[in-house]
């Protein structure tokens, strides 16, 4: 039982996909201008991650190793489309707010990364717990970042006006530079106060979406591939 809890909490704190593993940066930066769209993004990505982890874990003995990546991509893309259709039909405001970043969940590194690193090797229950933990970690990071950006940038939180801040909004926080800046500061904060080993290196191979089939993994820094043997 303790083991199961560990699988679940792993993604929330110790291996938080956004703040510690630095995965899925694009949606984090883009959808964190408002708390409501950030939570929508987190929920949509969690739903896709949960479905894909469960199915990939179920099929892990059926899918041949050589064609696993195309299989994963088809499964993930299908779940993304399903979430897209459901949101369009039943939650139009979220669908509208997420825009192009909704179909782009397909290429979110967290989902393919978890499929490759966890779901393809573990049981269904563990994979589902892992997906929930990772999804929650992703959503929480988005939530924190969106709270900061919305509070300072628009002077509101979940659409509610905040005292003082509402009269002095710093509009730049909701724009692109604010996204980079707040994200940089959050990671610095985690580095400073995080109990776990801070990430000294700037960017590592495992946080790359293509790590699963990149020929340069392990050589670090996407440098030229060492000469192939003849």
């Amino acid at each position: 039982m303790g083991n199961k809890i560990k699988v679940f909490t792993n993604g929330i704190i110790r291996e938080n996909p956004v703040l510690v593993l630095i995965l899925g940066t694009c949606p984090v930066l883009a959808t964190s201008t408002q708390v409501s769209s950030a939570v929508g993004m987190g929920a949509a990505a969690t739903a896709v991650l949960l479905c894909s982890n469960i199915f990939i874990s179920l099929l892990r003995k059926v899918i041949p190793d050589k064609v696993r990546i195309p299989c994963y991509i088809v499964l993930i893309a299908s779940f993304v489309t399903i979430v897209q259709m459901l949101l369009n039909a039943y939650a139009y405001s979220i669908y509208d707010a997420l825009g192009i970043f909704l179909p782009l969940i397909v290429v979110n590194c967290i989902i393919l990364g978890r499929a490759e690193m966890f779901a393809s090797k573990n049981t269904v229950v563990d994979s589902a717990l892992d997906a929930l933990g990772m999804g929650l970690g992703f959503t929480m990071a988005l939530f924190v970042m969106a709270s900061i950006r919305e509070a300072f940038g628009s002077g509101t939180w979940m659409g509610m006006p905040l005292p003082v801040l509402a009269d002095n909004p710093v509009a730049i926080m909701t724009m692109a530079p604010g996204g980079f800046f707040v994200f940089g500061c959050l990671i610095a904060f985690v580095n400073k106060f995080g109990k776990y080993k801070p990430r000294k290196k700037s960017f590592e191979c495992e946080s790359c979406p293509s790590a699963t089939f990149c020929t340069m993994v392990g050589f670090g820094d996407c440098q030229e591939r060492p000469k192939e043997e003849a």
Binding site: I22, A176, P177, G178, G179, F180, F181, F183, G184, C185, I187, A188, F189, N191, K192, P198, R199, K200, K201, S202, F203
Partner: peptide, 17 residues
């Protein structure tokens, strides 16, 4: 110290943006 690596990179990306 805490800004070394990725954080300072992101902050400079903010300025470029």
């Amino acid at each position: 110290e805490s800004f070394k690596g990725l954080p300072i990179t992101l902050v400079s990306a903010a300025i470029l943006s």
